[in-house]
Design a binder for these strands. Structure first.
Lengths: 239, 239
DNA sequence: AATAACAACCTGTCATACAGGTTTAGGGGA
DNA sequence: TCCCCTAAACCTGTATGACAGGTTGTTATT
């Protein structure tokens, strides 16, 4: 019922930004959890005293960031944590050359040295099995680079998940898109079967260390893995 | 000139998602850099054969993620790397209790152990001065918690900047919002002047190590700092 | 040649309309 | 009484047209 008639205190945040804030504020103040429904566009329109256009652009923006889920006919709902927005930011940074692939790898190395250690300490048996499974699938599909890549990505995401810290998962997953675009380059530099199998063995070593619950060993293998990957990229001439 | 009349191959990605992809694709294929202008809404409307409503929601979504900049009268332009979207994702995770403050601190610790080491190796003199300056301002404003907090945040962001890896900056800055919401709690647990000054001294030690160019020492001080901060949060009963 | 007014273009916001999906309230039949 | 089915009410997705106000380039005047 509160009329908020555009406090002239600020210059021009824009009605849409205001609406976005109102919605996130609503989530916060109502203590909404993932899955809970948000007010309808009509309700928001009345509450904010703006046109449906503005409210819709606000909802749509939040939806693009994956903070809410929208679907036809249903009210929008609070979304589960998702990597959508982060991926887009990273990809944007890469395509506009504000970030280099190497810089991403440095961050990945930093983070994954930690996730792998945490995974070794906190993994459930199921998680350890999933990690080992990804490594095994890499070897089994060894002749199909595309498949190896997907299992490689799944491998790293599984480790992040086993760290039991969703923020790590979020970040690692956000980098997957970049990985998809550069992975093949690294693979090609390992020209011989031997070199490629060695890289796969590196993954198996990591999986083994996690299974054993040895964080130090796991981190060592991970470091080695990243050092070689970065070296491969550099050899391939990636800036 | 290419008409793309809604290929019925997919079920329903939604026109807006399609438009968003078209825009990001445009940025990629044209190799646009920050500041470069994008097509006008009218142009996009024609190209995609959809209503202006759809195109606008797409632009607005990208603007919300800070991938593009919009302003009245002017065409949208490609944006510089910005933390906007990431912050919102993290905040969303916190407010919906999908992420705990402690988990954020674990990630921060992991990342900042690295940024501080990189900063020690790569900082320019100007950057080292800025870092030291923030630490000094913490001490000078020591009676004003609000000010101490802001300088604390600036301190960590300055270190990330000095790492010369924008991805680290991005992530560290994204966490600043969370820090603003929990910082005071940690400060209050350091009840005595002595404890508070000790915490400030920790920052000065870090700044000193960076100035000396000693990555190992810098990382050690940073680790100590985070361990104490986390301990403070736990003492305060933060889950 | 400098400047000032203007025209063309662009985004911001609003109102309205309608198609189609989803939920809910009744109502009829077993 | 209980269940199922239908229709109304509500909701989102998209399109169209309109207008205010900002921005830019062009033209006419001095």
């Amino acid at each position: 019922m509160q009329e908020q008639t555009d406090p002239p205190g600020e210059p021009n945040p824009g009605l849409v930004s205001t609406a976005i804030q109102a919605i996130t504020q609503h989530i916060r103040s109502e203590g909404l959890a993932p899955g809970d429904p948000l007010p309808s566009e009509a309700a928001m329109t009345r509450q904010l005293n703006v046109s449906r256009t503005v409210v819709r652009e606000a909802f749509r923006s939040l939806s693009a960031m994956r903070l809410i889920d929208m679907s036809a006919g249903r009210r929008a709902t609070v979304a589960k944590l998702d990597t959508g927005a982060m991926s887009m930011v990273i990809e944007h940074g890469i395509t506009t050359q504000q970030i280099s692939v190497q810089q991403v790898y440095d961050v990945r190395r930093t983070i994954e040295m930690r996730t792998v250690a945490l995974a070794a300490l906190r993994r459930t048996d199921t998680e350890a099995a999933a990690i080992a499974q990804s490594a095994r699938l890499m070897r089994e599909n060894f002749r199909n680079p595309e498949a190896v890549m997907e299992h490689d990505i799944a491998f790293h995401e599984a480790i992040a998940a086993a760290s039991h810290n969703p923020v790590f998962s979020l970040i690692v997953t956000a980098f997957s898109g970049v990985t998809r675009r550069t992975w093949v380059i690294g693979w090609r530099t390992r020209s011989s079967d031997e070199a490629q199998l060695k890289m796969i063995k590196g993954h198996e070593d990591i999986a083994g260390a996690i299974l054993k619950g040895d964080p130090r060993l796991a981190a060592e293998h991970m470091a080695e893995h990243f050092d070689k990957s970065v070296k491969a990229l550099i050899d391939a001439g990636i800036a």
